[in-house]
């Protein structure tokens, strides 16, 4: 990490330190403009929930934060560090893949479809990146994996294969796998959308505990209850722009915009 830019972000812009600072994000797929200049700021320990109808660009915005999507314009800074690019003099250079991979160590991500590695056991899933990417010893990584699996309530499933687990269990393993990298930030992309209704609760419980433990989180979700209860900030997107953002009480209970109101009336 470049200490210069980190220090700048740590003290700049209103004097508050930001884990996520995304400014003027634009992203198009062909002629379809998905994000039309979106800003997002997340302070340490804060839980930000991204809400919006499908196609509003919320998942795309999340994927821009760890450079799974390349932004067309705008900047993403994680903990002060520019993601995917380097500024040298007055020019911006795209980072080589290897350095982008290096930046992603700091950001954990949980996917809608879990994406556990099916050819590995649960514990192998969890220790894969710490041992291969961070160079931890297997013993050390296993010890840490044991703690994390206990934390998500799956200590007894360490030797199971993903197909042997329910969707809720798989998603909790996916959370443990992301946490094993000791990230500064966790991204959740509709983590409960692929789950049977009775399994949603166990995943949200783990996320709630994670938030209580002080993890900085950005969550794309349709779980309004979760956003209201756990979220510090709710950002409502529609048509590639931020329509409204604020505390859950403000946005969810006293929405100022017609589009927010009509969306909430449909999902509540």
């Amino acid at each position: 990490m470049t200490t210069g830019s980190a220090a700048e972000a740590a003290t700049g812009r209103g004097g508050e330190r930001l884990v996520v600072e995304a400014l003027g994000i634009h992203k198009s797929y062909g002629s379809l403009e998905v994000l039309k200049g979106v800003d997002l700021r997340v302070r340490p320990g804060e839980v930000t929930c991204l809400l919006g109808p499908s196609g509003s660009g919320k998942s795309t915005l999340l994927r821009c934060l760890n450079h799974l999507e390349r932004v067309d314009a705008g900047t993403v800074r994680i903990d002060g560090e520019l993601v995917g690019y380097r500024v040298k003099g007055d020019k911006v250079y795209e980072l080589p893949k290897r350095e982008v991979a290096h930046q992603r160590r700091n950001v954990g991500m949980v996917f809608q479809r879990f994406n556990l590695f099916p050819h590995m056991t649960v514990v192998q899933n969890v220790i894969e990146a710490p041992t291969r990417v961070l160079g931890q010893s297997k013993a050390e990584a296993r010890e840490r994996a044991r703690e994390l699996l206990a934390q998500v309530g799956l200590a007894d499933k360490a030797q199971a294969y993903p197909v042997q687990l329910s969707g809720g269990q798989q998603q909790r393993v996916a959370i443990a796998r992301a946490l094993a990298m000791q990230p500064k930030l966790m991204l959740f992309d509709e983590p409960t959308s692929a789950l049977d209704p009775e399994l949603v609760g166990e995943v949200l419980d783990v996320m709630r505990r994670l938030a209580d433990g002080g993890m900085t989180m950005v969550v794309v979700t349709h779980e309004i209850g979760f956003a209201r209860e756990v979220g510090d900030t709710v950002v409502f997107l529609d048509g590639g722009v931020v329509v409204e953002e604020g505390t859950p009480a403000d946005v969810l209970s006293r929405p100022q915009h017609e589009r927010t109101r009509s969306f909430l009336s449909k999902v509540l």
Binding site: L68, R104, V107, G108, M109, F111, N115, R132, V133
Partner: peptide
């Protein structure tokens, strides 16, 4: 994607 998000190189 999941592997890349974990910081694994190509």
């Amino acid at each position: 994607e999941a592997a890349e998000a974990l910081g694994m190189t190509s």
